[in-house]
Amino acid sequence: MELPNKEAYESLIRRKILFFILFISAAFLAFLLDIAVGSSGLSLYEVFSTIVFPASSDPTSSVIVWNFRLPKALMAVFIGASLAIAGAEVQTILDNPLASPYTLGISAAAGFGAAATMVLGLTLTSFAGNVLVSINAFIFSFVCFFVIYFIAKVKSASKELIILTGVALLFLFQALVSLLQYIATDDQLQNIVFWLFGSLENSSWSTVTICLLILLIFIPLLAIDFWKLTALRLGDEKAKSLGIDVEKLRLKVLICVSVLTASAVCFAGTIGFVGLVPPHIARMLVGEDQRYFVPLSALLGSLFLSLASIGGKICCHKGVFPIGIATSLIGVPFFLSLIIMKRSGSF
């Protein structure tokens, strides 16, 4: 028997896969461009051959690509994906399109950890200093996470409560960061501000590995619950009646989101926008079937961060342009144009 609705559903799925392919190509292209663009320009062909045939390539470009550009470009891809996935899931479990990974206060806590390390006199330029900043940022983001998790756990994971706790902690840590800025010396202040803007300058192969590992662990952990998370969008009561343990699911996703956010923020500072807008765009394009929504959010996050990195390098040849600023400058016009072009509202 031929079912007309089956046809329609299959073409809907095909459309979603098409968007996926489109953006995976775009993200890959942006990634290569990100490697090519810089103070000593390389052609896309040079980039490609240096990566694919490292043995037979020009030693100078090989050093530039492998030691400097590639780790940064990969960091842009992985951090973009981490933040966008975290954003998509925070919006899902809190049933709030305005939520982002930063709503939970984790980034502010990480910022406080980082700023505290700097003000305590550890210079940003020394290697040990950098690592300490990241470690301290990680520790404080976990302090923040544990407070939210604990409160959520005793109060049956109510989403209103999670948001309120998150926002309260956000203000607390922001106040503490301001306090540190107030007492910091001029040099320290500059370091703090630079860190808060977000940057990929401290990328290395070890940070790349950590971020990749975290993605490889947490994406599958989320993926096994994609249908349940989609069903959660019908409301807690409906989800419960469909046999979903809503409380357990929310707490589990809270853990995943916190780790993804913390790993991104600790290595690259508070890059805004990527956790908020890519999920919106993904939602407009493919809806909220998480099997497509989450991967597309991740791709868009990577794409935006790569583009921002390219844009930053083009605008600012010598110094380092904070990527967090570039993401917003590039992303917001794009996002607004999408909103204006889209006729029927989907969010």
Binding site: N5, A8, Y9, L12, D95, P97, W227, K228, T230, A231, R233, L234, G235, E237, K238, S241, L242, G243, I244, R283, M284, G287, E288, D289, S346, F347
Partner: peptide, 24 residues
């Protein structure tokens, strides 16, 4: 179970919403 008011702001097609009835 059919709730008294099933409100949602999910961005899902009717087909997908019905699939979710079999989420288990």
């Amino acid at each position: 179970y059919l709730p008294q008011d099933s409100k949602t702001n999910a961005c899902l097609s009717v087909f997908e919403t019905l699939l979710l009835g079999m989420v288990h």
